[in-house]
Design a binder for these strands. Sequence first.
DNA 1: ATGAAACATGAATACTGATTCATGTTTCAT
DNA 2: ATGAAACATGAATCAGTATTCATGTTTCAT
Lengths: 208, 208
Amino acid sequence: MGKSAGQAEAHRQAPGNQPKTARGEATRKAILGAAERVIGAKGYNDASIGHITSEAGVAQGTFYIYFKTKEEVFSELVLEMGRLVRHTIAEATQGIENRLDAEKAGLQAFLEFVRAHPDLYRIVQEALFVDPNAYHEYYVTFADGYCSGLSAAEKAGQISKGDVETRAWALMGIARALGEQLIIFKSEKSIGEIVDTAYDLIANGLKP
Amino acid sequence: MGKSAGQAEAHRQAPGNQPKTARGEATRKAILGAAERVIGAKGYNDASIGHITSEAGVAQGTFYIYFKTKEEVFSELVLEMGRLVRHTIAEATQGIENRLDAEKAGLQAFLEFVRAHPDLYRIVQEALFVDPNAYHEYYVTFADGYCSGLSAAEKAGQISKGDVETRAWALMGIARALGEQLIIFKSEKSIGEIVDTAYDLIANGLKP
DNA sequence: ATGAAACATGAATACTGATTCATGTTTCAT
DNA sequence: ATGAAACATGAATCAGTATTCATGTTTCAT
């Protein structure tokens, strides 16, 4: 929804080639979607261009009309995941005044997102090896936002005092581990149960 | 022929070939160490057998005397990492009666280990893609131990009540994220500072 | 209607790198 | 001392696959 006038921004992308017609647009999207499924399922190295293009229903050469290299699609997927996750969480916590409540809602939204997009999740993990830069950007951007939120809450007296950066990483770590338990280790628990337990830990700690 | 008793089981390892002399033992160790350094630095896919053997100072073919495939060395490294981490933490928390104190000491030991063995850390992460089985085993074994510890502490009234499994994953997630911040994101913070902040969060939560 | 730009094709290219193998060399129990 | 097993070599094999390219087809502004 958020209408960012024109696609000019792109910040620092190096597009192999942007499509100029509706037809091209559709093809590019098909390839991107196929890449997400195939790379998510088989991993970066076992996902060949051939696999991706055949999943997309186009010829192999078509791939290179829209992407300069295999790595480029991958990077784009990581970026997309970042945008999506941040957007999802922002939406889920919008308007929640209390930080602890926001923490809970955000965790819930994150876990639901992860369950809905297991492929994208794996792709981010693999970025550490395929595209460390994208991996960095993903987490640093996330951590920055987290830090600001915690700082504000601390100033407002909504949470106790403590180094926000370490806390941000610790909280991200909880979300990540629970997401992983869900999709990599196929936990049977409901997201609601997980969130309740985790929230209690985050809010009150382990002390009796 | 003369095929008899021999290599029956060894629990579940699938050794390409165990060395039978001191010379072979040394060569195998050299290859394993080289693999750790090279794979840790370049990642699994960019680390070729040629790189590994030349780092080890042996010929390429020698690799296959001791390992059936490239994947096999990798698996062995993950296993070794698991053993080492568990041992390190067990040692650091030995004799500590109170669970919260043990939690703190364990986290500190883990972070120190990670800082000392950044290569091994990356290797475990990559196992999710190269050898999902080893990855599973690594975390499930760890989680199991964690669960028992938390259950006992809960029964002893040392910590509050809560689903131990979710808690175990959350706590592992904290440790992992902080370790990652340390070595992947090159945080400047001292381990002591990090542990103090994280411990406060784990023990008391965020509530003011 | 039309031609230039955009899009699409898939076979050919070019290269990498894991694994094998035929051939030596070393070790060690006897 | 000796020969069989263990160890070592590195060139050759073999398969996969990212990327290019010469050749069509479609789109659309004029």
